[in-house]
Simulated assay, not measured.
Amino acid sequence: MATPRSSSTVADIADARRTMYRQQIVAAAEYEFSQTGFTDARMSEIAKTAGVSLATVYKHFAGKDDIWDALNAERMQEFVSAVHARTETVESPLEAILVGVRAEVEFFAAHPHFLQLHINEGLSWASPSGDAGRGGQRAAWRTGMEMITRAAEAAVKAGEITGLRPEIAGALVISALQVWLTDWVTRGKVTPIEAVADAVVRHLHISLGATPT
């Protein structure tokens, strides 16, 4: 006779299935948002791309805005973790910024649909205030801006950045990322991403007042 499943086992299976469906739907939405933009993306197409029914999509998300917020929150958590993993042992605050920038370029290159949907918005990543961005996207931009501004504050305090307020230094970093990554996409992503990262780092060595290497 088969041993009956415990209630905790059944709950674990249900949680795993729920997580799997949410991940499928978020990944499908990320693709659809990158192709058509948020406004024109249709829930039916998200369901089709995810390989699930429209009812299943609505079972896990209230609508497009809910999926959009979940996507931005998930990717931003991954983004912060990727930068932290690369910079946690770097002692120089300025070097940590530059190492972090390289990690950020590589992160966006590894998530091209996420990059594209932000480019599609046509807004400045360095101005995450007021009505800029949409829903969870605003929180994602603020998180990135605050993270880099804190790093710039440490570099200013250490005397590695002079003549710039931390907020301006942070905005320069974010703007450089947007300019170079948008150019990379526009040109068909043919330039090796390592070369793109090198170019951004060289630019920031100069714009942040450091001696270029």
Results as ranks from 00 to 15, higher is better:
residue 9 T to D: 15
residue 193 I to A: 12
residue 8 S to R: 13
residue 67 I to F: 08
residue 154 A to Y: 09
residue 47 A to M: 11
residue 135 G to F: 08
residue 194 E to L: 07
residue 167 E to Y: 06
residue 41 A to E: 00
residue 213 T to V: 06
residue 59 K to Y: 09
residue 51 G to F: 07
residue 122 G to K: 11
residue 110 A to G: 15
residue 206 I to L: 03
residue 155 A to Q: 04
residue 74 E to Y: 09
residue 97 I to A: 14
residue 157 K to P: 01
residue 126 A to V: 04
residue 16 A to P: 01
residue 23 Q to N: 13
residue 100 G to K: 06
residue 183 D to T: 15
residue 8 S to V: 13
residue 148 I to H: 02
residue 6 S to N: 07
residue 37 G to V: 05
residue 92 S to D: 09
residue 143 T to S: 12
residue 91 E to L: 14
residue 78 E to Q: 09
residue 122 G to L: 07
residue 208 L to K: 02
residue 79 F to A: 07
residue 196 V to A: 15
residue 188 G to E: 07
residue 92 S to E: 06
residue 192 P to Q: 02
residue 24 Q to K: 14
residue 98 L to R: 04
residue 168 I to F: 08
residue 89 T to H: 10
residue 54 L to E: 07
residue 36 T to I: 03
residue 47 A to Y: 13
residue 116 Q to T: 09
residue 207 S to V: 12
residue 135 G to Y: 08
residue 74 E to R: 15
residue 204 L to M: 08
residue 10 V to A: 12
residue 92 S to L: 09
residue 159 G to T: 11
residue 14 A to N: 13
residue 73 A to P: 00
residue 191 T to Y: 03
residue 158 A to R: 11
residue 75 R to I: 05
residue 64 K to F: 08
residue 206 I to S: 08
residue 191 T to P: 04
residue 19 T to I: 01
residue 156 V to R: 06
residue 81 S to N: 10
residue 135 G to E: 07
residue 101 V to W: 00
residue 164 L to K: 10
residue 9 T to Y: 10
residue 139 A to T: 12
residue 129 S to T: 14
residue 86 R to F: 00
residue 184 W to T: 01
residue 7 S to L: 03
residue 44 S to A: 15
residue 83 V to P: 05
residue 38 F to R: 13
residue 65 D to E: 15
